[in-house]
């Protein structure tokens, strides 16, 4: 979560049209465009929050999307679950989205391996998150170690800065949530699950 207080989250929500992270839907759309999902492909949003992206995937991309979040969710197609243990059969999904969640987890590798489990071979993993721009190799290596080939890696720190600027304009403290380090950046990645 980019902003830890409830009031802050409400502001962030309002500012980003409910999506609550840098780039809004534009990064998600960009990632989807670089995947070739079958019509009615099955896609999971891991850490879906209010489920706004799930709705977007259904309405704008014609995907059979569902979401899970560790926090209580209102109703189906959302379920309350941990990203470490998804309520999904092995190899059942065409895609997993995980936006702005991995950086909060104590064990990102475990989550990535779980995504690998539920994805079909050649299924897509879409990630967007904060990262340390001086150590971007770490995340890429981790993906490879967990059985993924990276097909898209883009720096979107500008979107992060724009969100910071927007928060500053609203008089919110952007320093605690966005700029922990000078080298903090934002990436968008798409990876494909390898054959074995």
């Amino acid at each position: 979560m980019l902003y830890s207080t409830a009031a802050g989250q409400r502001h962030l929500c309002a500012m980003t049209g409910g999506i609550m992270r840098p780039g809004g839907f534009s990064l998600t759309d960009r990632a989807i465009a670089s995947c070739s999902f079958p019509a009615k492909g099955r896609v999971l949003d891991a850490g879906c929050g209010t489920g706004i992206v799930v709705e977007h995937l259904r309405s704008h991309h014609g995907l059979l999307a569902c979401g899970i979040d560790i926090a209580t969710c209102a109703s189906r197609p959302f379920a309350q679950a941990s990203v470490y243990s998804l309520p999904v059969k092995t190899g059942a999904l065409n895609g997993v989205l995980c936006e702005c969640v991995l950086s909060l987890l104590p064990d990102a590798g475990r989550a990535l391996r779980e995504f690998g489990r539920v994805l079909a071979v050649d299924g897509y993993l879409i990630l967007s998150d904060l990262y340390d721009r001086e150590q971007q190799g770490c995340m890429r290596e981790l993906l490879q170690c967990c059985g993924f080939s990276i097909i898209l890696w883009e720096d979107h720190t500008k979107a992060l800065r724009e969100l910071g600027a927007l928060m500053a304009l609203q008089g919110l403290d952007h320093t605690t949530c966005l700029e922990t380090k000078k080298s903090t950046g934002y990436y968008l990645a798409v990876a494909r699950k390898d054959t074995c």
């Binding site: 721009r133 001086e134 720096d155 979107h156 500008k158 000078k182 950046g185």
Partner: peptide, 12 residues
Amino acid sequence: YNNLSIVMGVRQ
């Protein structure tokens, strides 16, 4: 040098 060699994205 890192700052100057970033073609895309943001400098620091």
